[in-house]
Design a protein around this nucleic acid. Structure first.
Lengths: 113, 113
DNA sequence: CAAATATTTCTATTATTCTAGAAATATGAA
DNA sequence: TTCATATTTCTAGAATAATAGAAATATTTG
């Protein structure tokens, strides 16, 4: 994942309502949730919900599939992983052996080569 | 880390300039960088830089220490880790065995108990 | 104390994002 | 085809965030 894409993902998650939406979907797993179910669960107005879902969709964090009249949404785990990867892989890249060795977020000093 | 704190962190990182600042500090390691060095590296106006640093500070992602006239900034790795932990620990909490088992971002199915 | 340096706070302007009502689109059912 | 349901797009006003100039604060040096 490139810096720009990470920024889009971070931006998508950095909003109270969108973080709630994303977490609902993450917990819903493979089955996912319909837009209508999300609307009911969050009591959001339709237009507002669609806009937030679009931001999550553009970030690649949410995917969906039409099933008749219903649009079923799912969290995109690989994209979620890519974001976490971006945040950890680039950590301390310029200074292996620094204090981040003691943290779990930095993998500089754990790489094979 | 609570949802509110994670939101503050995500918000802090979800900005082009702040992500650049944070990454500079992450790479600078223990030594960190002075505000003036950050200003030079990013060509930001002083007031703008201070505002962005304050947002990172409030999020707990950046700490600093005055050394004479200079204020030396460092990335706060534990807080960074807490954010990553929040994003992974709550993943799929409600549905162990779901598709996220195959991803590295979900640790629901990897927990000891 | 006065001057110089580093950084922040104050302030106002500009830009962006959020929100939701209303109209539009897509699908399924009668 | 006509009606009902699900969701989106359009639109505009309201709220929030970004930016930077200028003044203020803190520290060191002479």
């Amino acid at each position: 994942m490139k810096s720009k894409a990470a920024l889009v993902c971070l931006n998508a998650l950095a909003h109270e309502r969108r973080l709630i939406l994303f977490r609902l979907l993450v917990r819903a797993g493979d089955v996912g949730m319909a837009v209508g179910e999300l609307a009911e669960a969050t009591a959001m107005a339709g237009a507002s919900l669609t806009n937030h879902l679009n931001i999550l969709r553009r970030a690649g964090l949410v995917e969906d599939e039409r099933r008749g009249r219903v649009i079923q949404c799912r969290a995109n785990y690989p994209q979620m992983n890519a974001l976490l990867g971006f945040l950890t892989e680039n950590c301390c890249a310029g200074s292996p052996g620094a204090s981040c060795t003691t943290t779990s977020s930095c993998n500089t000093n754990r790489r094979a080569s």
